[in-house]
Design a protein around this nucleic acid. Structure first.
Lengths: 355, 355
DNA sequence: GAAACGAAGGAAACCGGTTGCCTCGCACAC
DNA sequence: GTGTGCGAGGCAACCGGTTTCCTTCGTTTC
């Protein structure tokens, strides 16, 4: 028995010299406690502001912790308290242009809450998705953020998880889940109202594939907004692809068939860029002859475009941040279920400048 | 004493019915052990292939684990073994176009090794960087990957860390550190040799700012490669910015001053796109009159360009993957110090097509 | 038939931080 | 002088998995 105790004590405590010397192993709370002349439990209470301690003792412990550069062992803390201060972020399709700002926003909000993020890229593969889900759960994450490239609602990643989930950009088709999504209808309406405010009345709409949720929503709102003013598109919505090539092609069609148009609202900046190129090549001046509005406010596109492109910004970073904040709320016991739509913002540039 | 034992047993074991019923709390190894009719220690040995157990017992434990969906508590495992099977990935500047493929490659290689990734975005802020470093260390990551936007060597993120570090894309200026970087000189040489193989001899080079490491390296190799063939650039390397606007401007200068040129090698795809646009507008045909090569092989740029752009691919994903593999090696005790250059790849497209 | 050996599995220490409970000692009241 | 109350801090259980040591068999050997 005494042998055991001796070994125990050898393993747990160090002499003050040892403690102050450079030590390879990171300092434990026992080291801090020893240096402050208190027990480990007391040290813990001092550092966490719990228990009934003399201010002077608390101070001494804090000083010892600082001196040793004590940060604490996250695994041990997690084991005891059940909270890991980590969340998992799963991008259902690959990490791409849309996921990045979302991730940055989320990571920003979470980092401020001293929460670390596990990054998982499921690459559109349900098997990878479930693998990551299991991994994250076995790591006892406090919550999950699910993101993806499409705004269309998707089936929940799982039913009855032990931790809260927030969907960002994409949404769950279970209305009881918490989702934070851009209000794309709002974005489309802003674009149209902006064009109307410039006096444009003969507007065309070129966008992505009809089976794509975003394309349908934006087109629908575009038509509805015009209808509300007693107007209509000069030609029916032109569905195609999310590419510059389609933008160029569509502009060609417009030039050859439309009886006249003074504005084009495009479903993406890439499409808008293609449209701009072809219109310019055909001698149409932007914005004098044709005003042009894109969607996404993607820097390299709006800046590379000639002239610089007015566009709709979905504030992806804000969506990521909001999602993270809602996740933190849910973790702390105040979930905010439902689909939360966040407004878009119109960023005016030369392509719709007046004069 | 007996009270203690009773409480202990209440907390630790569940009746078989409880165990098989839907339980909110994830199953522990004690649950598995109980279901298999062995002790927790034996269950651990069975699942980890250690100890001396009858094959039939091992089998029974595995079956019980499967039945309960046992994955194990990562924090507990980490606490006991000291290994967390996590690594931290710090992007020194913001997550962007270059970081993403790197991250994807690294995450891919690590995920295959059952290692999870903590994502940290230091946003060019040394304070954030050190904050993340401390956080990651207190989480006992097994290793670190440091990435960033620039290829230029940077000071080591810290001296004498308790875990291995691998730099990806960027490199540490301590040659003893392990860095995996693209061989940009190789990329530039491939571009020039490609143009030479097409019979082009009057080559111009338009690139980014002279103070930028990548621009200098690529320009230097461009000139050296030409010199090796007894040739020189038609005009000295044109340093500017990494933007389409600069590409357009540079092309304008070329058209007005150069006595003649049949190829332009650009330091980035964005520059190349700007060059292409201006040349086309001036009536020069690509590739017939002027062959064009970019750098980065950035999909939206090379595909959006007219015509599609031949470009140099640095294989960022491969760099990320290699970095992760080297980190895993280092974690397992076989570090491979030094700066590792990985070759580039030329991706031919219409902008240098023959005929 | 007893000693020796090895296979199989259990008991408990251990990782490090947290927390409930208990003790100690001092101050104050009766 | 004894009792009560409370402030301060220590002790040890606990989280869940791993690992070391030890016990308990059954089998072999002389």
């Amino acid at each position: 028995m005494s042998t055991v105790l001796v070994r125990f004590s050898e393993a747990r405590t160090r002499t003050p010299e040892e403690t102050l010397r450079k030590i390879e192993r990171p300092p434990t709370i026992t080291d801090v406690a020893a240096l402050a002349g208190v027990s480990a439990g007391t040290a813990s209470k001092a550092l966490n502001g719990r228990g009934a301690l003399r201010p002077e003792t608390r101070q001494r412990v804090h000083q010892a912790a600082e001196q040793l550069g004590f940060t604490g062992n996250a695994a041990a803390r997690a084991l005891g308290t059940g909270r890991t201060y980590t969340v998992g972020m799963i991008t259902t399709d690959s990490i791409g242009r849309f996921s990045i700002p979302l991730m940055m926003g989320a990571e920003d909000a979470l980092g401020a809450g001293r929460v670390s993020v596990f990054l998982c890229d499921a690459r559109d593969d349900p098997i990878r998705e479930q693998y990551y889900l299991r991994t994250l759960l076995s790591r006892n994450v406090d919550g999950l953020i699910v993101t993806g490239r499409r705004t269309q609602a998707r089936p929940p990643i799982a039913t009855s998880l032990p931790v809260p989930v927030v969907y960002a950009f994409i949404s769950s088709d279970d209305p009881a889940d918490c989702s934070v999504v851009p209000d794309e209808a709002d974005g489309a309406e802003r674009a149209i109202r902006h064009l109307l405010s410039l006096g444009r009345r003969r507007i065309a709409h070129v966008t992505g594939p009809e089976h794509h949720h975003s394309a349908r929503v934006r087109a629908g709102t575009t038509e509805d907004t015009l209808a509300g003013e007693g107007l209509a598109l000069v030609v029916p919505t032109m569905f195609g692809e999310w590419s510059e090539a389609w933008g160029r092609q569509a502009a060609g069609i417009l030039l050859s068939t439309a009886t006249g148009f003074d504005a084009v609202f495009c479903g993406s900046d890439q499409i808008a860029r293609g449209v701009a190129e072809t219109l310019r090549a055909a001698g149409r001046h932007i914005p004098q002859d044709v005003a042009l509005v894109g969607f996404d406010n993607w820097d390299v596109m709006v800046d590379g475009c000639q002239p610089p492109l007015t566009s709709i910004d979905m504030d992806l970073e804000g969506i990521g941040r909001t999602a993270a904040e809602m996740l933190l709320d849910a973790i702390n016991g105040s979930p905010v279920p439902g689909r939360h739509r966040r407004p878009c913002r119109l960023v005016p540039r030369t392509s719709t400048a007046v004069g």
